[in-house]
């Protein structure tokens, strides 16, 4: 696969390390009283869509950026690539909800 890096252009997937579902960036914060279910859901429950899937890729053999890659799991088509930090800043509402 080729992942178009936002700064470095098209890069072979072998330069990256895959982590999985991009939902991992929405880590709940520990606030009293501690809600264990929320943490449980964050850690163990994932969507496994056949189709567009936002996932985390780390450009380890490159600029060490964590990217949110939207990939069609059926065709491997790369639909969108963003820096994780930029993706997060576009999802501020989401972040405050958890």
């Amino acid at each position: 696969m080729i992942i178009p890096h936002p700064h470095l252009g098209p890069r072979d997937a072998c330069e990256f390390v895959y982590k999985g579902d991009a939902e991992l960036v929405f880590r709940p914060e520990r606030v009293a009283p501690v809600d264990y279910d929320t943490f449980h859901n964050y850690l163990y429950l994932r969507q496994n869509p056949a189709g567009a899937h936002k996932e985390l890729w780390y450009h380890e053999y490159g600029d060490r950026s964590w990217l949110v890659v939207t990939r069609n799991t059926q065709t491997h088509e790369i639909l969108k690539v963003e820096f994780a930090s930029e993706y997060l800043s576009g999802q501020k509402d989401r972040k405050s909800n958890v």
């Binding site: 960036v25 880590r27 985390l56 060490r64 950026s65 964590w66 820096f83 930090s85 997060l88």
Partner: peptide
């Protein structure tokens, strides 16, 4: 190192 970069970029940007 990979994990720390994840924490830095994805959890505490």
């Amino acid at each position: 190192f990979r994990h720390l970069e994840f924490c830095r970029q994805c959890l505490k940007p």
